[in-house]
């Protein structure tokens, strides 16, 4: 049987280019980079919780000593930072390109348009992402560079965190960002699975549970400081 299979113009390009050229491929890139960032967020949250159970300053030293025979002191942290930066750049570039494509696809809007199906999480992915990006900049200046931190001494993580969350407005800013993260993850995890071609039955409930868990885990530290549980 002679089949004439159409070969698109993309057929001769390599796998990454082909993926990036397609709107579906960009969502695959967003799913994979989102997964990397989710993995980091979970590890970060677990690390934060050492403030309740042990020595968070020592945890910071532990991270810098990881693989230090190979990477040198602090090398591991820099490897992670480079991977995260790449993931964020790819994730945001794909998001911006898809948002612009969506705007081009509907140049004239509707006179009346109520919200029908999409939940709050799905509708706020783009602006929620912008809030998260701005927060990450503030967060790095606050607790990594120490520039915006009231204490801001490198390596004195516990003291920096406690100095931060004495102030209700810092707690409010972190709360806004973490809640935005929860919403972003709630739709993001569910959607990423479908972008990768999986539609497991319980994924909606699972995404909600993980999103709420991460939100609570991150909010535990600022509120513990604000209410004097962690000094």
């Amino acid at each position: 049987m002679a089949l004439t299979l159409q070969r698109g113009s993309l057929g001769r390009q390599g796998f990454p280019c082909r993926l990036w050229a397609s709107s579906v491929g960009k969502k695959v890139v967003m799913a994979v980079t989102g997964g990397i960032l989710l993995g980091y967020v979970v590890a970060h949250m677990v690390g934060n919780l050492t403030i309740f159970f042990g020595d968070i300053d020592g945890y910071g030293v532990f991270l810098r000593e990881l693989l230090s025979p190979v990477l040198g002191y602090g090398g591991f942290v820099w490897v992670v930072r480079v991977v995260l930066l790449l993931a964020v750049v790819l994730h945001m570039t794909a998001a911006v390109q898809l948002a612009r494509r969506a705007a081009r696809a509907r140049p004239v809007g509707y006179a009346r348009r109520p919200k029908v199906q999409g939940g709050y999480a799905a509708r706020t992915m783009r602006w929620g992402g912008v809030i998260l990006a701005l927060f990450v900049v503030y967060h790095l200046l606050d607790l990594t560079a120490g520039v915006l931190n009231p204490h801001g001494v490198e390596g004195r993580i516990h003291a920096n965190v406690v100095a931060d969350f004495q102030h209700w407005y810092v707690v409010a800013a972190y709360t806004l960002a973490v809640v935005a993260l929860g919403f972003h993850l709630r739709h993001g995890m569910w959607s990423a699975l479908r972008s990768l071609g999986k539609a497991p039955g319980a994924s909606s409930a699972a995404a909600l549970i993980v999103a709420v868990g991460i939100t609570v885990g991150f909010l535990a530290v600022p509120y513990a400081v604000l209410f004097g549980i962690v000094r």
Binding site: Q6, G8, L10, S22, S23, V24, K26, K27, L98, R101, A102, R104, A105, R106, V116, Q117, G118, A122, R123, M125, H187, W190, S191, R194, S195
Partner: peptide, 22 residues
């Protein structure tokens, strides 16, 4: 592949799985 490529070329937007369609 070809159908997705065609809808991209025709100027349709990308899917963000909002569920409005279904």
């Amino acid at each position: 592949r070809n159908m997705v490529e065609a809808q991209d070329d025709l100027g349709f937007g990308g899917c963000t799985l909002t569920g409005e369609c279904t």
